[in-house]
Structures are given as C-alpha cells and as structure tokens.
Write a protein that binds this DNA or RNA. Structure first.
Lengths: 341, 341
DNA sequence: TTGTAGGCGTTATCAG
DNA sequence: CTGATAACGCCTACAA
C-alpha cells in the first residue's frame, strides 16, 4: 500500500537533509540554486505534496480563511470565485464549507474552527444578528458577514448599497418622466428594509406621491418571490388606474409581476415600466430583459478578504462596515411613460 | 492572545487524563457515563473544538472526501449538497475545493492531496479524459468523475443517462403523434454526443425520418446556447415547412429557439412543439414552461460518494461506471401536432 | 549548508 | 480509569 512521499523520502532521494528540503519548498533562504533545482525536480518526480495538516499543526498561526457559503444561492458563487485570488494575493489559503438544507451554519463554523482558520467569512447566511454575534463570540477568530447586516462591534460587515441602488433606480425612472412609481415590498426578505429606505428617500427628495404595496409571506418557499410579484400585480390590477412604473427589490418578484401584467393585457414598457433588483440570470433572458440593479459580487469578495486580513493581522481590531456600490442596468422593461387620456 | 483550548486543557479542567478526554470525544468505549457527561459539558463550556490537523496527522487513514466543483456552474451546487449527508452517513467528512476562472483543476487537486483526502470527487470538470487520467495516476487515491466521461480503468465515472433521456423524450413526442422531429445538435457540448445517440436510436426504432441541425461554435461564451437555439430557429424558418417538433439537448438552446420562433409568428405548441434538456431554472419560468429532461443531481452526489467509499474501503478496486436515470418533465411547450393543410 | 533536538495536538498502546 | 511513551510530518532554533 503506497504511502504519499514525505520530506524525509524526498531528502533521501536527493541525498540532502530533511531541513534543506523544507527550506527549498517554502522558498526560505539558505540553499544553493543547484540544490533547489534538484529538490524541486525530485518533488515533481515523486509526486510530493506537502502535508498541510502537519504544516498547520506546527505553524503558530494559520494562513487559512474559512468561507461559509450556500451553494444553492445564486450570487454567492461569484463572491466565492473572487475570494480565491484575493486571498492568494495576501498569502492566504481558502477553506470552503457549505451550508445546505441538511447542514447548518453552526456545523460549518465548527468544521472551520476545527481547521484553525485564521478568520471566518460567512456569505449570505440565514443567521440573524444574534446568531452571527454568537458565532463571533464563540470563535476566537475574526468573523466577516457578507450580506445584509449592519455595522456592529462583534463582526465585520460587507454589504451592497441596496438603498442607494434603489434610489438611483427611482431617480432614473423620474428622469424618464414617471411620477407614479409603485414599490413592491416583500415581507421578510432580509435586505428588504434597507432597499425600502432607498425608495422612501428618493420619493421624498423628488416630491413624489409614494406608493408601497406590502406583501406578507414567508421567505422560505421556493418560488416565493415570483408569487409575491404575481400577487402584487393582481393588487394593482384591481385599482382604477395603474401606476406608470413599478419597482420590486428582487428580480424574481419583478418577473412574476411582469408576466402577470402581460397576461392581463398590460404592455411593458408602453403601459407600465417594471424594474427589479439583483441583475439575476432571469433578468437577462431575452424574453424578460428586465431593468435591474446589479450588485458587484467580485468586489464584495475582495472586500471580505480585506476585512478578514485586516483584523487577522491586527492592524485594526474593531470590526468595520464595508459598503459596495451597485450599478443600474437599463434594459427594455422600462421606458418613458405614455401620455394618458 | 487567547489560544483555542486543547484536550489537555479540557482534561485539566475536568480533572481527568488527556486520554480519557480523547476517548469520550470520539465515542470510544472505556469511560463511565458520568465522566462522559462532565467532559462533554466542559467541552461546550470552554468552546473546545478538536484540532482536525492534529487528528488527521495522527490517524493512519483519512476520512475526508475531497470534492472539486465549479461554483459558477448551475447543477453542481445540488450535487454538492447531496454529497454532505451521503458522506456523513458513511463516516466521512467533506473537503471542498473550487475550480474557477483563476484556479485550475490541478490547483484544486493539489490542495486536496495536501490534505490527504481519502478520495477525490471531481464534478463537471473541464478536463477531458487525458486530464482526468493524469490526475488519477498522479494521486494515489481513487478519483471519481461526475459528468460526461465514459467507463475506463483509471477513475470512476458517474453520469446521467442522457441518451435514454432524449430517447424517452422522442418517444413521448412520437406518442403524441409527431413524425417530423428535428434535433438541434450544438457542437462542442461535452455531453452532446451521448444525447445525440439517444435521438438517433429513437428515430431508428420508431422508423422516423431523422433530421439533425448541427450548429458549430465554441462552448466558452456566456450566452452561447441561446444563440445556438436562435440560429437553429432561423435555419428552420428558411425551410418550406417546419417540423412539428424540435428537441434541443440543452434548455438554454431550446429557449433561444422557442423565442425566435415565437417572434416570427410561430405558435408554441400549436404549430411546433419544443423541448429541452436539464430542467434548468429557465425551463420552469411561467413564461417559458418548457418540457425538458431532468437529471437527478441528488442521486449523482450519492452515487459519487458510494463509488468513492467503495474504492477507498477496498471492496472493489476496479473503477466502475454509474449511470443515473433521468426523468421526463412535461410542460406546456409540447402538445399533439395540429393536422396541417 | 548539515545535523540534532524538540514540539505542535492528537491517537494509540501498554502496563498498572 | 490513569500514566507513560511513542508516533504522525513538518517547522524552528541552535550548534556544528
């Protein structure tokens, strides 16, 4: 039964000491170029790979960033993708742990703490503030929440400027000439309150008559948001007059709304402009082509790594809040309002 | 600077020996119930978590399954989700490693080998057979490919029965009364040849006049498949007569085709039935509602774990091929053909 | 450059 | 149940 080669095997093969092999493999000074060459070649030849458990056991401080993510969610993969190069640039490895239907955030945390990660980055967790606070207090390492949290003294927060994103969207609609802009507010959507504030600010500043359609319901169900949008559309259709524009803080809700309106003879964007939030995959489908607000997952990943490293290396011990800007993506579901009779 | 508690700390706190703490924490026999209780309580109180590096360094054989996946791809998250409980059931932990635009499969392999995983599960890799073979030969541990590979002697293969899935789809269309069923064949789609064989088998068996529209092009681009579908639709529209049904081995291609046909005045499914493959998110949108073939990602994950464990535990040394059945999902994009003039 | 010695936290074995 | 002892593979310090 073949055993993976160790540094000792390598050293014996080359005819040098174990220590020297160690030096070479971690690029430390103290070995001649010729020796380096021979050691590296032998490593390749024997298929050597350093035993990271042994290494991390010996090393005082770990160079691993633990990342907890939910594979099922949509924007998170892009954040995870961005974390790898950002971490590598700063000399850190990444250790992933999935949070799934059958695997709680706590289990994921437990695993990563067992690996003695230097910091924990939690992406899009369903944990509320108290849960995250408990994680941060339980683990001796810094915790970074990527999602919808607010600044606090227990863990770092990286989030999108959802409020400003919605505000910019309303501004854009107002510039097109819209004065009746309805906002659909799905209850129990974690980033909901923030985005709603953006709408309220814009409406106040522009001196519009705000109109918020609040939709109750539970966040857990699969097609929940499309249903929310469809229900909101039915509510609007019962009125004497439709608004000229509708904003939903979620693309799936916007699509549910859009399709329900179309099915009832409303033309988009001629009769009503519709816009969403997230720039999700469905927003980009040619049959949907929805104006939306795009979050920047790459920048969120990089910001999370920066926050983690900052605190690991002790430059700044107090947790911070990092806000990542969003950007408006205009598509064909929005246009200037028609003059009405 | 606080250090995470060790078993020694725990032992001192409870007033027992280290060994006993170790026994208790890994549920080994040899400790009284009362001692177990006290040790566990102390572990919780001190926030102890076992140092997995130390453990895996000491243990002869590792109990980790290394999983390589591409976060950006769509069906993989579901496979990953299924792997966790399947592995846990068999006493294994899961170690994830992402393959991204900036991180090759080889890098991911290197990381997992460094952790001395017991086996490697590679999901949807862009590696061809030779690449996977190289991985399998380089690593001393069993390798399982989840994707589109074929049976071979170097690594296990877990794949969907894409051929039978398409065959079943064509059978269903034929039963509806369709005799002119066109197949769109996107070039350079890895599972393409397999699915095409299914079409060819069905056509031969049913004695239909087969009609394959081959679309050249590169697999790498983002909206490639929608474009393929749109181009295929244009090709069909140039003919004197449309087929009564079109099958695309990919939902995005089917959607591109469907929308292009609709935009040219073709009614779906009245004039033409359209079906895809994958049961992707877009197939389920109410505006699309596409008949499709669903792969079973959960079963693929479980099968991958089974294959890995089977070989790790030496019950079966020769790599096998596991074929996971697909299932037909009928929606409103397909119906019986109209009688034509 | 090499060798020697020790230790990281855990598991394992053995005698008491 | 305890205590003693060793080992896993690697890193670090120090002396040769």
């Amino acid at each position: 039964m073949p055993r993976p080669p160790t540094m000792a095997d390598l050293a014996a093969h080359v005819g040098v000491s174990r220590q020297l092999v160690s030096l070479v493999l971690r690029d430390a000074p103290g070995a001649s170029d010729e020796t380096r060459r021979r050691v590296r070649e032998a490593a390749r030849e024997l298929g050597f790979s350093p035993h990271v458990a042994a290494r991390s056991l010996r090393r005082a401080r770990s160079k691993d960033l633990g990342v907890i993510f939910a594979p099922a969610h949509s924007t998170e993969p892009e954040i995870v993708e961005a974390i790898y190069p950002a971490a590598a640039e700063r000399g850190y490895d990444v250790m992933l742990s999935a949070q799934t239907a059958t695997r709680s955030t706590d289990q994921a945390v437990e695993e990563l703490l067992g690996h003695r990660c230097a910091a924990l980055i939690v992406i899009g967790s369903d944990l509320k503030h108290t849960g995250l606070r408990a994680v941060a207090e339980r683990s001796l390492v810094p915790v970074v929440d990527v999602g919808y949290g607010r600044r606090n003294q227990f863990y770092d927060v990286v989030r999108s400027s959802g409020d400003r994103g919605i505000e910019e969207l309303v501004d854009y609609l107002a510039e097109l000439g819209h004065r009746q802009i309805t906002y659909v507010d799905p209850a129990s959507m974690p980033p909901g309150p923030l985005r709603r504030r953006g709408y309220e600010r814009a409406v106040k500043r522009l001196e519009l008559a705000g109109d918020i359609v609040s939709m109750p319901g539970d966040y857990t169900e699969g097609n929940y948001f499309e249903e929310v949008g469809a229900a909101a559309a039915r509510t609007l259709l019962e009125r004497r007059e439709l608004p000229t524009a509708v904003v939903a803080p979620n693309d799936h809700a916007a699509v549910g709304l859009l399709h329900t309106l179309i099915r009832n003879g409303v033309r988009i964007p001629d009769d009503v402009s519709v816009a969403g939030f997230d720039d999700a995959l469905i927003a980009r489908l040619s049959s949907v082509d929805l104006t939306s607000v795009r979050q920047d997952p790459g920048l969120m990943g990089v910001s999370a790594v920066e926050a983690a490293v900052r605190r690991v290396e002790g430059q700044e011990m107090r947790p911070r809040e990092t806000v990542v800007e969003t950007s408006l993506v205009v598509r064909s579901s929005t246009a200037a309002p028609r003059k009405r009779g």
